[in-house]
Design a protein around this nucleic acid. Structure first.
Length: 228
DNA sequence: GGCCAGGACACCA
DNA sequence: TGGTGTCATGGC
């Protein structure tokens, strides 16, 4: 893993657990995924692929307004209707195909009830999800954690950006490398992983977009790039 | 008008 | 195994 630019060493105590505590002190518990039901979480996880969440919200509102925010509601729609509902989230034909594949998976394995994923062994669920067309590591882990409640750490672009900035990641690691980095340093706890990812998203949205970045950042005590 | 956003996949070397 | 093109909208 990366070292700081100044000293060549990792800052003392600046591990994932300390960083989480700093975020928790600033933001409080987030306990979070922007979705009211496990099904909505799954849909959001697919629609957000390479997409700003504001656009995903637009698509989710269209689905809800159409009264289709359920397995049954979407399963009975044509591909064209699915694509039309997903349009504001971009790559809508691709996403219609991917949601269709996910619905087929839920139908065949859980009889159309996404809650069935919670009773699956986490590793087996992950393996099954990765076999679905259009579901990669991040989407599978988001679903496993936020829809099924399994202790799976989600790695996204925000995670990479922030921990690279902190000097804890080099930036070129694989998804599995980054995930193992966290799993080796944190207790295996679904509530912790849920909140941690939520804190990362909140930090990224509130502090890592605008410049200057560091003045009000809760990670200022452990950030080696202060002043840059 | 260009660039980017909470990826995944096919294709190629 | 790693790099590149594609999907495509909306906000800035």
């Amino acid at each position: 893993m990366a070292r700081t630019e100044r000293t060549g060493r990792r800052p003392r105590g600046a591990g994932p657990l300390r960083i989480y505590r700093l975020l928790l002190r600033r933001f409080g518990h987030a306990g979070w995924w922007p979705g009211d039901t496990p099904f909505e979480v799954c849909l959001g996880a697919i629609l957000t692929q390479n997409t700003a969440w504001t656009n995903v919200e637009k698509a989710l509102r269209r689905v809800r307004a159409a009264g289709r925010l359920s397995f049954e509601g979407l399963s009975t729609l044509s591909d064209a209707r699915l694509a039309a509902l997903f349009r504001p989230s971009g790559t809508y034909r691709v996403k219609a195909r991917r949601v269709r594949a996910f619905l087929s998976f839920i139908e065949s394995r859980y009889g159309g009830r996404v809650e069935g994923m919670s009773r699956e062994a986490p590793e087996e669920l992950r393996r099954q999800l990765l076999a679905v067309d259009g579901i990669g590591p991040e989407t599978a882990d988001s679903i496993a954690l936020y829809a099924a409640g399994h202790p799976v750490f989600v790695v996204d672009a925000y995670t990479r950006r922030i921990f690279s900035r902190l000097g804890l990641l080099a930036g070129g690691e694989s998804y599995g490398d980054v995930q193992r980095f966290f799993l080796r340093r944190l207790p295996r706890d679904a509530a912790l992983f849920n909140d941690y990812h939520a804190q990362i998203v909140r930090l990224a949205k509130e502090h890592c977009r605008a410049r200057p970045l560091c003045s009000a950042c809760p990670l200022e005590p452990v950030c080696p790039r202060r002043g840059i």
